[in-house]
Amino acid sequence: MDAKVLQKNLLELIRRTSAELPSDVVRAIEAGARKEAAGSNAKYAFDVIRENIGMAKVKSQPLCQDTGTIIVYAELPSWCDEKTFRKAYEKATAEATKVGYLRQNSVDAITGANSGDNLGPGSPSFHFHQASGKALTVRMMLKGGGCENVSTQYSLPDARLGAGRDLEGVRRCILDSALQAQGKGCGPGILGVCVGGDRGTGYIAAKETLFREMDDVNEDPRLAKLEKRILKEANSLGVGPMGFGGATTLMGVKITHRNRVPASFFVSVAYMCWAFRRNGFVLSEGGRITRWLYPS
């Protein structure tokens, strides 16, 4: 495939991800809005959120000004090597920044200088895998700083929470993370959780689990049960959208697990804000998008 065609398709992916909220997320927001009392601050927050979703799509402009960390997962077929993909994605990113689909969001951690084009060490954040077939599959997520800052990691046992090394301990940690995030993470939020792993793989898996559909059910019945329980309990906390108080504190909990070493037991929580921007496509070798993974 011509590198320019790849780049053009990636630019469209970035535009859609930044401006259009996937329909599974919109449905969850609508369901949350219905639960809030008329005239409440919570209802007002939902009204503005819903208006904003429509406006961003129509104007083809960022849903949220914090266009976040650009997280990219690419399954590369034999016709597209890593270097080619990276170069095309970087060019698309610089172009997207120039036209305002993305904010200038990449800052040198040592000097504080903004690169101005979203490029630099670790940005975008690429994750490459080999594709089993002939198609190129790309998934991306824009994760804002507000929600990333309230993401957190627990090491069990945790005396403060009375959390031991079992699913009850895991439940306590996840509920605590929802309590601590109040207001700051642009709720109602969605939690991606990984039980186990090391500190690095735990956080990565927690974020990856956010690629699940909002209304799916965990294949592991133990985790499905835990997800349902925590969602209900977190919403009984009364934190509400924006921390204004209300019925919808969380819209989803997605839990996965990784094996751990005997000495470690981490619970990693990736908090995602309501502006849950993720999308992806399947691209044929001929340069045609055959499927959008999270239609708006």
Binding site: Y44, A45, V48, I49, E51, N52, M55, A56, K59, Q61, P62, L63, C64, Q65, G144, G146, C186, M242, F244, C273, W274, A275
Partner: peptide, 13 residues
């Protein structure tokens, strides 16, 4: 004064 987080379009308007 609390503005609605994430509502970048409504507020930019």
């Amino acid at each position: 004064l609390h503005a609605i987080g994430g509502a970048a379009q409504v507020l930019a308007e």
